[in-house]
């Protein structure tokens, strides 16, 4: 049975049984096991604390300082000045920066549009791979290719195909007579976001499709046979039987993809570099941090991104859990 990615004991009865047996064997063995368990966990926990916990704490701290990249040690505490401050009757800080809000809007737009498209096409591809035909394994392997290609490489491949003068896509569209003049896919402010979405959708459909396919393969076969015998249309079967049953798997795919999309960086960095029409929160934060060397301000942007993602995760898990609770 599919569940959310949250932690659940798959076999509580087995563990309970083990506890009962452990109890019979005396608590000495049990104590030894628990001690060993913590000892085994320690290296991993220390590593995570070093690469994730401590850096996160420092980033939040930096966001309240005027630290610069060349010298983070002599940073001075400046309170909320990086976020919002009033001086001489004018508000300053990241929350008043229009390009930050553009980045927030771009990130949300990119995430919602690309994840929606990925889910729709992912489900279609999964249904296709679930059908029985010769060479299914080969098709499945082919579908996996975009997932395996490094994001940077796929961005470069598409940048070449979307090249305004020599790109195959413009060539194709002109040959078909759909456009008269070549489109500047990655440079035109109205098109560049769609170019980015196109590449991201191409790259991540396989991931969604595989998750959905795994759920599809666990569905009972008999109700489909019954539906076919009764002559119910396949579309009706899909919306009334399949879709409700694969919803938990879809929720998992959406949360994974959404979290990935909200922190998007590399596709955009390569495809449209620093263009403001595709600048996302990650690009904005890194630009402040590395290019402008302003660690304090950049950390404030990073912290806000972290808070937004944490908020969305919590809300999503809460809603998802309730939905799943009804299912159970």
């Amino acid at each position: 049975m599919t569940t959310t990615a949250t932690h659940d004991d798959p076999e509580p009865s087995r563990i309970a049984e083990q506890e009962r047996r452990d109890g019979r064997r005396g608590t000495r063995v049990r104590r030894q096991r628990v001690r060993a368990a913590w000892l085994f966990l320690l290296p991993m926990l220390i590593t995570l604390a070093l690469v994730a916990g401590w850096p996160l704490v420092r980033t939040v701290y930096f966001s309240f300082t005027d630290a610069s990249l060349s010298d983070t040690a002599s940073a001075m505490f400046i309170g909320l000045e990086n976020y919002l401050v009033r001086a001489d009757g004018i508000w300053y800080g990241i929350l008043t920066d229009p390009s930050w809000w553009t980045a927030v809007w771009n990130t949300l737009f990119f995430s919602v549009v690309s994840v929606s498209l990925e889910v729709v096409f992912g489900v279609i591809v999964a249904l296709l791979l679930n059908a029985e035909f010769k060479g299914r394994i080969l098709v499945r392997a082919a579908v996996l290719i975009p997932w395996a290609i490094p994001t940077i490489v796929s961005a470069k491949m598409w940048a070449w195909m979307l090249n305004d003068q020599f790109g195959i896509i413009n060539h194709l569209l002109m040959t078909l007579g759909l456009i008269d003049t070549p489109l500047a896919w990655t440079a035109d402010a109205d098109l560049s976001m769609w170019a980015v979405i196109m590449v991201d959708v191409w790259k991540t459909i396989p991931f969604v499709a595989l998750l959905v396919l795994a759920a599809l393969q666990m569905l009972p076969k008999d109700c489909y046979e019954a539906a076919e015998v009764d002559g119910i249309s396949p579309l009706k079967v899909f919306f009334h039987v399949t879709l409700p049953l694969i919803t938990p798997a879809l929720l998992v795919a959406v949360i994974f993809r959404l979290l990935d999309a909200l922190r998007v960086f590399d596709v955009i960095y390569v495809l449209t570099s620093n263009s403001s029409s595709t600048m996302t929160m990650s690009i904005y934060a890194r630009q402040q941090l590395v290019e402008f060397q302003d660690v304090g301000y950049g950390s404030a942007a990073s912290t806000l991104l972290f808070l937004i993602i944490a908020l969305i995760t919590v809300v999503y898990l809460y809603l998802g859990r309730r939905q799943l609770g009804i299912d159970r």
């Binding site: 990615a5 949250t6 932690h7 401590w54 996160l56 704490v57 980033t59 960086f265 941090l289 991104l305």
Partner: peptide, 25 residues
Amino acid sequence: TAVMLIILGVSMFPQVAVLSGLFEV
């Protein structure tokens, strides 16, 4: 369960959120 939740939490981290702290480390 707490350890599992920590692990799940870290896997959802945006990389940019730790960039400056990790740079320092």
